[in-house]
Simulated assay, not measured.
Amino acid sequence: MNPNEYKHFYNEVGRLNGWDFSRLNVIVEGEAWNFHDRVTSLCRPGHVLLDIGTGGGEALLAIADSALLLIGIDQSEGMLETAAYNLGRSGKPNVRFLHMNAEQLHFPEAFFNLVTCRHSEFNAKEAARVLTQDGVFLTQQVSEGDKINLKQAFGRGQAWNIKQGILQDRYAAELQNAGFSRVQTFKYDATEYYSSIEDLIFLLKFTPIVPDFGQSDTDFQILHRFIEENQTDQGIRSNSARFMIIAEK
């Protein structure tokens, strides 16, 4: 496949895959945890859960049976339209989606037993305010070394040339300063294989891994070389670097 064909896929891939990242075909080797499994392990039938940066709500709906009430918030109207559609299809009566900024949560103090945030910004003080005294905050974030071979190929990228661990340390310090009594951090760097060119291009188009990807024809030439160099029998190779913080009040 040549660079012009990659460009064609770039223009078509949103229509083919929609916004649902769960539909990406990717094999991950060395993933140390599943974030939502960790969340559900802490859920109890009477719990109320807040999910910050809920996106299209697919992940929240998948764990809806784990708690009494689950509320997902997001700043994007487009994402919330998708979430509302997904909610209607799911038939889950205990899930709500709201348009809200994480910097100012419009909920009473001590309203939630759990607050979660996956790959999204959050405000530590606001999270602490809306949590019950024995509440727990969990977040998973993208580490600086994520998709390192892609960033090296393009010479730019999300958190490019930023020292490893900066974001994790910042978030942990903010949570401690917000009054959480116990803050634990975890991290992993897993190998991943994208099954198809469409999967990789979808990732580049709808995430900030390589800023402004697709605006230059040169990007498709670089992508062509990257795929040739990283194609394996399992798929197109990159890496998934993540950290997780669990903070208890």
Rank of each mutant, 00 (worst) to 15 (best):
N2K: 14
N2D: 15
P3E: 07
E5Y: 03
N17K: 13
F21P: 14
S22A: 02
N25Y: 05
N25F: 05
E31S: 05
A32V: 03
A32D: 05
N34Y: 08
R38Y: 10
R38Q: 15
S41Y: 02
L42A: 05
C43R: 10
L49P: 06
G57W: 10
L69E: 13
I71Q: 00
I71K: 01
Q75E: 07
L80A: 11
N86T: 06
L87G: 10
G88A: 05
G91M: 05
P93Q: 13
V95C: 14
F97A: 09
H99R: 15
A102R: 12
F107S: 10
F107Y: 14
A110T: 08
V115E: 01
R118M: 09
S120F: 04
E121W: 04
R129E: 10
Q133Y: 14
F137E: 11
F137I: 12
Q140E: 15
E144W: 07
K147S: 05
Q164K: 11
I166P: 00
I166W: 14
L167T: 13
T185W: 02
F186R: 08
Y193P: 01
Y194S: 10
E198R: 10
I201A: 04
F206W: 12
D212P: 07
Q215D: 13
H224F: 15
I227T: 03
R237H: 02
S238V: 07
S240D: 10
A241S: 15
R242W: 04
I245Q: 00
